[in-house]
């Protein structure tokens, strides 16, 4: 049966093949590295040649012994939750606005402008933000504007302030991702039968009623699917953005697991602890996705599996 199907639709399967190879090479093969969490890893002996830890869970004990573990987990969840709560609905709202806009040229320009930040790296995005908010010299334009609005006359490094950290994380996250993420919702909206809108208009539904009763239910399966997939990211606050926004002043909020993994693994060569932290994050993400999928399956009929 399966053989027949493959034979019949071999071209479609061929299209899927590169993606499968990619997943195998970059996502499944590296999983062998999890062994490092149970070993006294030495670069001389490699992953398989290194001695097993004695006791086996020594690296887990060391990871749990970290006095900063609780604040790190708390910060990771706080940052990722805020990013999910703001960054997830933003592209849906943006896509709806674009979908409702009648000036197609404006829509095209707005789309290009909104996609651009996604195409540049976090380093560039935050360098731009730094220039906008710098108090040195004549002061960046955004800095001058904030000072003018708040009447602040003191030299203030907003990028270094603890209470500005989370708003800046949210703002830059939305700014960078809103345009790109809206593509999938716009595509989903295009699949809605236009006759539904026409019928609703004839029945006297206004714009908001059409959005609430046609557009949103129309894209709901896509929203649910992406929401479940995004739930996994709750275990990760993102490395680049947080690392680049991190400063001693905001460390109480910016000390997250993602940065810890990079610094302890790559900067300090402590691969075992970094692997344990990574494993901890992955298991947590898996639990979140499975739980999220089960709940959503129960309350709606949309789910990943």
């Amino acid at each position: 049966m399966i053989k027949k199907r493959i034979k019949k639709k071999w071209m479609k399967y061929l299209f899927v093949l590169p993606a499968l190879i990619w997943f195998f090479v970059f996502c499944y093969l590296p999983m062998g590295g999890i062994l490092i969490a149970f070993k006294d890893f030495s670069i001389a002996d490699g992953i398989f040649g290194s001695e097993w830890s004695d006791p086996l869970f020594k690296n887990f004990t060391m990871f749990l012994d970290n006095p900063n573990l609780f604040p790190m987990v708390r910060n990771t969840i706080t940052v990722s939750l805020l990013k999910l709560l703001t960054g997830f609905p933003a592209p849906i709202i943006f896509a709806i606005i674009l979908n409702e806009c009648v000036y197609k040229r404006f829509v095209g320009v707005a789309q290009i402008i909104s996609y651009l930040p996604f195409l540049v790296s976090w380093v560039v995005v935050l360098a731009i933000l730094n220039s906008l908010l710098t108090p040195t010299g004549q002061g960046g334009p955004l800095y001058s504007l904030i000072c003018w609005i708040t009447g602040n006359e003191n030299v203030t490094y907003y990028l270094l302030q603890e209470n500005w950290f989370l708003p800046l994380v949210i703002f830059t996250n939305i700014w960078k991702g809103v345009g790109w993420s809206s593509i999938i919702y716009l595509a989903s909206m295009k699949t809605i039968n236009p006759e539904l809108y026409e019928a609703a208009s004839i029945d006297g539904a206004n714009r908001f009623q059409r959005i609430a009763n046609i557009t949103l239910p129309g894209i709901l399966p896509t929203v649910c699917m992406l929401f479940i997939m995004n739930l996994g990211s709750l275990a990760s606050a993102g490395y680049e953005q947080i690392y680049l926004l991190q400063s001693p002043n905001n460390l109480e909020l910016s000390n997250v697991l993602d940065v810890f993994i990079i610094t302890s693994g790559l900067e300090n060569g402590n691969y075992e602890i970094a692997t344990v932290a990574g494993l901890f994050q992955s298991v947590f993400a898996l639990i979140l996705v499975v739980t999220g999928n089960t709940i959503i399956k129960k309350v709606s009929e949309n789910s990943l599996w």
């Binding site: 030495s42 670069i43 001389a44 002996d45 900067e267 300090n268 060569g269």
Partner: peptide, 13 residues
């Protein structure tokens, strides 16, 4: 960490 990496490299030949 730099010194540890060099010692490991020496040990590994």
């Amino acid at each position: 960490a730099s010194s540890a990496a060099i010692r490991e490299a020496a040990k590994a030949g």
